[in-house]
């Protein structure tokens, strides 16, 4: 995992596809993800609506459009804190930090690998069933988060960050994309 480490700031374009039970079609968000060093993580959504989120350890700041940034503690969203922590852990190559938050199961080889993560915190486990991260070589390609309520979110990164999606994306199609035809 140390091979994943890269100096901050590290930036990557991302495409997020969320399959939400309340909606008839998935939400597709595009933008840029950046690790600013330390525990600071930035997520800038460009489409469909501009939104900037910065997570720093225990608190997050959210700014929509040209509105005022709003700061809120992550007390109520421990899963967000854990996901951000895992992201930072991966980018900084800190395996111990990742294992503190998740039970990690790794397989594959250096060319194409997968990490299956299960939350350790009971409160987080009530919201998140499982997380899986696919990568190739030194780069993450894809992060899949399965919620307890049946919703699933795919975040495509790096080489996949700017990928052109089919008109009607499905979870199965995205899973295949993440696996890289493996």
């Amino acid at each position: 995992m140390a091979s994943l480490a890269r100096p901050a700031p590290a930036r990557t374009a991302f495409t997020e596809v969320r399959f939400v039970g309340l909606l008839t079609r998935p939400l597709v968000l595009r933008g840029e993800m950046a690790w600013l060093g330390g525990t600071r993580l930035q997520r800038r959504v460009l489409t469909p609506a501009p939104e900037l989120t910065e997570i720093d350890g225990d608190s997050a700041t959210l700014q929509r459009g040209r509105g005022r940034p709003q700061r809120f503690p992550l007390d109520r969203a421990p899963e967000l804190k854990d996901l951000a922590a895992s992201f930072v852990a991966l980018l900084s190559g800190n395996a111990a930090a990742l294992q503190r938050v998740f039970v990690v199961h790794a397989y594959g080889d250096a060319r194409a690998w997968t990490l299956d993560l299960t939350p350790r915190d009971a409160q987080v486990a009530q919201r998140i069933r499982a997380v899986s991260i696919d990568g190739a070589g030194r780069a993450m390609r894809c992060m899949r988060v399965d919620s307890r309520d049946g919703d699933t979110a795919f975040t495509l990164l790096g080489a996949l960050g700017g990928v052109v999606l089919p008109a009607d994306p499905t979870p199965a199609g995205l899973a295949t994309l993440c696996a890289g035809g493996r």
């Binding site: 939400v20 939400l27 997520r43 609506a49 939104e51 997050a60 959210l62 969203a77 967000l80």
Partner: peptide
């Protein structure tokens, strides 16, 4: 809809 795409959607 924007909320559902934001990090805190789970809440």
């Amino acid at each position: 809809l924007d909320d559902l795409g934001s990090p805190g959607a789970g809440l």
